Simulated scan of single mutants.
Amino acid sequence: MNRPARLVTAALTASAALLLTACGSGGGDDSSSDKIKGADQGGGKASASASASASSDGVKRPEISLPSTFTMNFEGWTNSDSKLQAILDDGKEELRANHAAIIEADADADYVTFYNEGVALETSRKWIKGYVKTDDSLIGTVRVFDSQVRLNSTGLGVLFYCVDEGKASTKNRKTGKEEGTPDGTSPYLQYRTTLEKSSRGVWQTRSVETERGACGQ
């Protein structure tokens, strides 16, 4: 899709012609050194409830729901370790929050702030604003798979995962024009993120890097 990229690190190639290319940058020494091996209108409104619900850990989290016109399928998003599962859960909601904000056309949505911090928050907002500026929403389905998660030596969560954008598109709210991943471009994108547990117990994303074509099917 001809959408603006979130800021991408110098090592990665940013292209405005890519479907949902996401952020890069931000992580300081942690993000650059952490490695995990193997690593109808689209305009429908996403709903992020202003009222939060308490989760099993007692933290009140915003309720985020996506419209029927856009689906995110998370495959194998589980881990037997409860700490690692908590990182997976908040990492999942961060990705859902950012996509919901595009559909809502609201870069300042509270749920984006809830799941992002620092540079990750700045780049998420910039990414979302790119869609708002061109009046584009999202439709279709993305598949999120091959999650790999661990805690590093400094206590940060390190989460890698793959996103298949092949069945998703942007849809312009005014013209109705739809654009998917261009021919010859891999629909697969690998996310490399670091997360830090906040004082209120939320694993907030603090850095994100992406690489297109780094994941297989």
Rank of each mutant, 00 (worst) to 15 (best):
G26P: 12
D110T: 12
V132H: 02
G76H: 06
F70D: 02
A107L: 07
K83P: 03
D164I: 01
P62T: 04
N172F: 00
L159A: 06
T123C: 02
V119T: 15
E117N: 11
I139V: 15
K92D: 06
C215R: 05
V59H: 05
A101N: 06
D29Q: 13
K126Y: 04
E122D: 14
D164Y: 06
S198A: 12
D146G: 11
S124K: 08
G118P: 08
D57P: 09
T78Q: 10
K129I: 00
F160G: 06
K37D: 13
Y161S: 08
A86W: 00
A39M: 09
D136K: 14
E209S: 07
I64N: 09
E104A: 15
I36P: 07
L84Y: 02
G26D: 10
S31H: 10
G38H: 11
I36L: 15
D183P: 06
T71H: 10
T181L: 00
I64F: 07
S199M: 00
E179H: 07
D89H: 08
C162L: 06
D110H: 10
G118H: 03
W77L: 08
G166A: 05
I139W: 00
Y188L: 10
D89Y: 02
R212L: 08
Y115A: 08
D164A: 07
A107Q: 14
T210K: 01
E211T: 15
G155T: 05
D135W: 01
E104K: 15
E178H: 00
L7P: 11
S137M: 07
A5P: 14
T13E: 14
R61T: 12
E122V: 13
V142L: 03
D81H: 10
T193C: 07
A100I: 00
R200F: 05
A86R: 13
G201T: 05
D135N: 15
Q217V: 10
Q148G: 12
S186G: 07
A39I: 06
D30Y: 08
